[in-house]
Computed example of a mutant assay.
Amino acid sequence: MPKLSVIVPCYFNEENIPVTARELVANEVNFPPEVTFEYVFVNDGSGDDTLGALRLAQAEYPGRIRIVDLAGNVGSYNAIVAGMAYATGDCLAVITADLQDPPELMARMYSHWQQGFKLVIGNRQEREETGFAQIMAKVFHWLMKNLALRNIPDGGFDFVFFDRQVATEVLNLHERNSNVFYLMVWLGFAYVNLPYIRRKRQVGKSRWTLSKKIKLFIDSLMAFSFVPIRAISVLGLGLGCIALLYGLYVIALKITHPDEPAGWTTLMVVLLMVSAFQMIALGVIGEYVWRGLDAARQRPLYVVREVLG
Rank of each mutant, 00 (worst) to 15 (best):
I121D: 04
W290T: 07
G45K: 07
M273N: 07
L171T: 07
L92A: 06
K213E: 10
V81H: 00
P32R: 06
R55I: 14
D259S: 13
I135P: 00
D49C: 07
E126T: 15
G83F: 08
D69V: 04
V8P: 05
I65Q: 04
Q58R: 15
A295I: 02
E38N: 08
V304Q: 03
V289A: 13
T209K: 12
P103K: 04
N151I: 03
Q125E: 14
A148T: 08
V185L: 09
M84C: 13
Q298H: 05
F217Y: 11
R207H: 10
D158Q: 03
P300C: 09
W186R: 14
E306D: 08
V139P: 01
R64L: 15
I255A: 12
L99K: 04
V42D: 03
L245F: 11
E260W: 12
R22H: 10
N43W: 07
E260G: 00
V269T: 08
I197N: 06
N30Q: 11
G155V: 12
K145W: 04
D69G: 02
A53Y: 03
L119K: 07
R64D: 02
M279I: 15
G47H: 02
A82N: 04
F12D: 10
E306M: 02
L253C: 09
P261V: 09
A190P: 09
P32C: 08
E287S: 03
I121H: 06
E128R: 14
L4Q: 08
R55Q: 15
E104I: 03
V74N: 06
S76P: 02
G236V: 01
K138T: 15
P18V: 10
L143P: 00
L301V: 00
I7C: 10
A79D: 05
N123K: 15
I280A: 14
F217G: 04
N146K: 14
E23S: 14
A85F: 05
V303L: 13
N179V: 07
I67A: 10
R199V: 01
R201Y: 04
T20H: 03
R124V: 15
V29M: 00
M268W: 13
D69I: 05
I152T: 12
D163T: 14
L173K: 14
D49T: 08
W113D: 00
L54S: 05
N177A: 10
D90L: 06
F37D: 01
V81G: 00
L51Y: 14
T88P: 00
N27A: 14
A59T: 12
H257C: 10
S220I: 07
Y86A: 04
F224C: 03
D98T: 07
E129Q: 14
V120I: 14
G188C: 06
R108Q: 15
P102R: 12
Y11L: 15
Y182K: 08
L248R: 00
N151L: 04
N123A: 15
L248P: 00
D163Q: 08
V8F: 08
R127Q: 12
A167D: 02
E23W: 01
D69F: 05
R150P: 01
T256W: 11
A85R: 13
L267M: 11
M279V: 15
K215E: 11
V40N: 02
K3N: 03
A26V: 00
M1K: 12
E38D: 07
T96I: 06
Q278R: 09
F117P: 01
C241G: 05
L221H: 06
L56T: 14
L282W: 11
C10E: 03
Q278Y: 09
I121S: 07
